[in-house]
C-alpha cells in the first residue's frame, strides 16, 4: 500500500515538532436519509475520534447526506489483498443459480 503509515500516532514529543507529526488518518462512513447501511464516503486526518467525527460532519454532511457517522482509524482496517481476488471471488461466478433470474417462472403465476 503506501510507504507512509498515516494511521499511527507519532510517538515522541520531538517528532511532534517536526513535519512528521501528522494527525492519523480516519475512514468515514455515513448512513444516508433512508435507513440504508453506513457507506464509506472518504477519509480525513484528525487527532482523535471525537475530532474525526466533527471533521467528518463538517466535510461529508454539508448537503443533508447523512443521519449517522462512523469513523475508524485507517490502520485498524483489515483488507483483502489484490492478489487474493481470484480465489476469493471467482468461485461465485459459476453459481448462477443463486440469482432469482435463473428460474423460469411462467407469467401466469403472477408476480414472484
Amino acid at each position: 500500500m503506501s510507504s507512509v503509515n498515516p494511521g499511527a500516532l507519532p510517538e515522541d514529543e520531538d517528532k511532534a515538532r517536526s513535519a512528521r507529526a501528522e494527525w492519523p488518518l480516519w475512514e468515514v462512513f455515513i448512513r444516508g436519509q433512508h435507513g440504508l447501511n453506513h457507506r464509506h464516503v472518504g477519509s480525513l486526518h484528525a487527532p482523535d475520534a471525537e475530532m474525526a467525527v466533527k471533521n467528518a460532519r463538517d466535510v461529508y454532511t454539508r448537503r443533508n447526506e447523512g443521519v449517522s457517522i462512523w469513523v475508524v482509524e485507517s490502520r485498524h482496517i483489515t483488507a483483502t489483498a489484490p492478489g487474493e481476488k481470484g480465489p476469493l471471488f471467482e468461485p461465485s461466478e459459476s453459481k448462477i443459480y443463486r440469482h432469482p433470474t435463473f428460474f423460469d417462472i411462467p407469467d401466469d403465476v403472477g408476480h414472484m
Partner: peptide
C-alpha cells in the same frame, strides 16, 4: 496541530 495531537496523546 501540535496542541490537539498532544491532547490526543495524553487522553
Amino acid at each position: 496541530r501540535d496542541g490537539l495531537l498532544a491532547h490526543a496523546r495524553k487522553k
